[in-house]
Design a protein around this nucleic acid. Structure first.
Length: 652
RNA sequence: GCUGCCGUAGCUCAGGGGUAGAGCACUCCCUUGGUAAGGGAGAGGCCGGGAGUUCAAAUCUCCCCGGCAGCACCA
């Protein structure tokens, strides 16, 4: 005699155990039609699942968020079913729902090609039209393994073997075809609809382990209706338009080439942005009590051995023999006995060297040592991506040497600094994560308790909310991470603060405490932007190339309608340039339409047009990027307003 | 590093065993035109690199290099 409480609080009584379908039918005919699953006490179930207990329940339709996940999950099954119908030599593995869609990993000798997609999609549509009903069965474990093995589905059999002993082995049938799955599923294939599309093909390791076989992963997207699918595809196009690699070329900011694989050639435009950003950060650091240093690129392997990098990190380091290359004789270019040096992948050991010069007193702490440190890391080639993931990059790095009792205060100060920087740079959605002790770690649990608490308390005292990323900390200490959400909703990890008691120990850093005894400082590794290269890439994509005036390489172009105004236009350009603005004069013999279009495409924030009228009145006609409107403004006024807008956010 | 796709002019791309193509950009000429492409002419490529097959390779095969997507990596 279950009593079902609906989301609106209404109660319905049933004489017998009731299924979702029956409940929906009891509520209304139209709901019965739309129902695809139901939630019982917060758990999602198949529509034909029955409950005999009193429960809070809700009917799920295609339009609910859970409904969309079901559509995607079923679409993954549909994909597997279609692929096995068309390519019988294929083994199925797993096919989860992901953001915006789903994927399915297949094992098959012959590679799939994106040209197969059309055929597979057609088959999927056929299966939707066939409206195959879903049927769940629970199989005994041994039988399930045997049946999948008999089908040649070795991956599935392996999955079942690894399921916890007490877990039901559920098999879902969609017509004749079936798959191991924990469910739930839509009542039939018709409910998936046809707003799906296969997107990409990629290799993926079985169980995500690179020692395992490579499977073929097919990515798809699925939505409630055609309109949403279209919107999604449109969103992808928009993201493509703001790709920093494309904008970098169009705006002449930088380039990359084979001969310097993974390193950026910054052009004058791009480097202008870099210099502005760097100057801004430098001013902020100075305000927050940092000192700036510059340390060597090439450092003897001995120091890297001492710091521990040689053991832990050498596969990512560029190593150079300290020898004169022999390019004349046929023998080895370098003496195999030559001493080895490494190009720094991090600045921290060098900063400890600076700290270690002379004797430090507790009065010197906290010592905040910053460097725009140029580092090289030999990243896996497949990981390189535009200027976002490179082999040479410059960190806005700093290390704070302090006492244990200063960590909380320094953490708070850092959080304040980081927040103000992100705000200045236009990032409003900033999230903080506390990454705690990983499984593989050094140190005692008491030490970890203490370290995690000090960071957590500092965040709480600073009034900051944070999320805990359990197990994501470094092997020696916990860390804070800053995640920024950009204009189109993507999340980027930028800032970080890492506690490090280990490196000062390894490199023998010490200070004299109040009582005259020698003590170890603790180090806080911290960055706000992360890498200049990557952050500039993020800024470019966040603004879709339309940079705020203080960062824009060319802030204004002065251009003419007819050559009669050339003299005046040049005077305007000279005046603005003398005032400190980055201005170009465009006196070319082209029509105004053409010039406006060209400078708009180049993302110049302000176009100042001069014709006979403006020359006469000593004004300019101002057209701002992204607007079709023009405004006539006196030369003095435009100078003042552009200057104000071009002021970096910390100087306002 | 792994899997798949790709590499032709500065850019976007077409072509495809037998003198290499378009649009835009570039140079010159005409045009002086009021806010997102005026008109004409010209120049520009060892078809990513190397080897092989062939009378003949940009085109077919193999090996490298690079790009894109994903995976793995990112103490």
């Amino acid at each position: 005699m279950p009593t079902i409480t609906l989301p609106d609080g209404a109660e319905r009584q049933f004489a017998e155990p009731v299924s979702g379908a029956e409940l929906a039918a009891d509520i209304s005919k139209s709901l019965a039609k739309k129902a695809v699953a139901w939630k019982v006490d917060g758990e999602l179930y198949d529509l034909d699942h029955k409950t005999e207990e009193d429960a809070a329940a809700a009917i799920v339709t295609r339009d609910d968020p859970e409904g969309l996940d079901l559509i995607r999950h079923d679409a993954a099954h549909l994909l597997a079913q279609a692929v096995q119908a068309l390519y019988p030599d294929t083994q199925v593995t797993i096919g989860p729902v992901i953001e915006d869609g789903f994927y399915y990993d297949f094992a098959r000798e012959e590679p799939f090609s994106t040209e197969d997609f059309e055929r597979i999609e057609r088959k999927m549509q056929e299966l939707v039209d066939a409206d195959l009903p879903t049927r769940k069965e629970v199989w005994p474990r041994a039988e399930a393994i045997a049946r999948f093995e008999a089908l040649g589905e070795h991956y599935k059999a392996e999955l079942i073997k690894d399921l916890p002993e007490d877990e039901e082995i559920k098999v879902y049938h969609h017509g004749e075809w079936y798959d191991l799955c924990r469910g739930p599923h839509l009542p039939s294939t018709k409910h998936i609809g046809k707003a799906f599309k296969l997107m990409k093909l990629a290799g993926a390791y079985w169980r995500g382990d690179h020692r395992n076989a490579v499977l073929q992963r097919v990515y798809g997207t699925a939505w409630t209706n055609e309109k949403e699918l279209k919107q999604y595809l449109h969103r992808l196009e928009e993201a493509e338009k703001r790709d920093h690699r494309k904008l970098g070329r169009e705006m002449d900011l930088f380039h990359l080439q084979e001969e310097a694989h993974g390193s950026v050639f910054w052009h004058p435009n791009g480097y202008t942005m870099w210099l502005e950003l760097e100057a801004y950060i430098r001013r902020k650091l100075s305000k927050y009590g940092y000192v700036e240093v510059k340390t060597p690129q090439l450092i003897d392997a001995k120091l890297w051995e001492k710091s521990g990098h040689w053991g832990k990190y050498s596969q990512n380091m560029f190593v150079v023999p300290d020898d004169v290359p022999d390019t004349v004789s046929d023998g080895a270019v370098f003496d195999p006995e030559a001493k080895l040096m490494a190009i720094k992948p991090m600045n921290c050991p060098a900063h400890v060297q600076v700290f270690n010069q002379g004797i430090k007193s507790y009065r010197d702490l906290p010592l905040r040592m910053a460097e725009f440190g140029c580092c090289h890391r030999n990243e896996p080639h497949g990981a390189l991506h535009g200027i976002m993931r490179v082999r040479q990059f410059t960190q806005d790095d700093a290390h704070i040497f302090c006492r244990w009792d200063q960590i909380a205060e320094e953490t708070k100060k850092f959080c304040a600094l980081a927040s103000s920087v992100y705000e200045d740079l236009g990032f409003e959605d900033v999230r903080i994560a506390l990454a705690t002790r990983p499984e593989m770690r050094i140190g005692t649990d008491e030490e970890w308790d203490r370290m995690e608490k000090v960071l957590a308390d500092a965040l709480t005292e600073a009034g900051l909310e944070y999320e805990v990323l359990a197990g994501e900390g470094a092997f020696y200490a916990p860390k804070l991470e800053y995640h920024l959400r950009d204009a189109i909703g993507r999340s980027w990890q930028c800032g970080t603060l890492q506690l490090d008691p280990l490196l000062p120990e390894r490199l023998g850093a010490s200070y004299v405490d109040e009582d005259g005894s020698k003590k170890r400082p603790v180090m806080l590794h911290r960055a706000i932007l992360g890498s200049m290269e990557r952050f500039l890439g993020i800024l470019i994509e966040n603004h879709a190339g339309r940079m705020p005036l203080w960062l824009a390489p060319t802030q204004a172009v002065v251009t003419t309608i007819t050559s009669d105004a050339d003299g005046y236009a040049q005077e305007v350009a000279d005046t603005l340039e003398a005032a400190g603005l980055r201005v170009k004069a465009d006196l070319r013999n082209e029509k105004i339409n053409y010039k406006v279009r060209e400078h708009s495409n180049a993302k110049v924030p302000a176009i100042l047009v001069c014709g006979a009228r403006e020359a006469e009145e000593r004004t300019v006609s101002v057209r701002r990027l992204g607007s079709k409107e023009t405004r006539t403004v006196s030369l003095d006024d435009i100078k003042a307003s552009l200057l104000e807008e071009a002021t970096a956010p910390d100087l306002r």
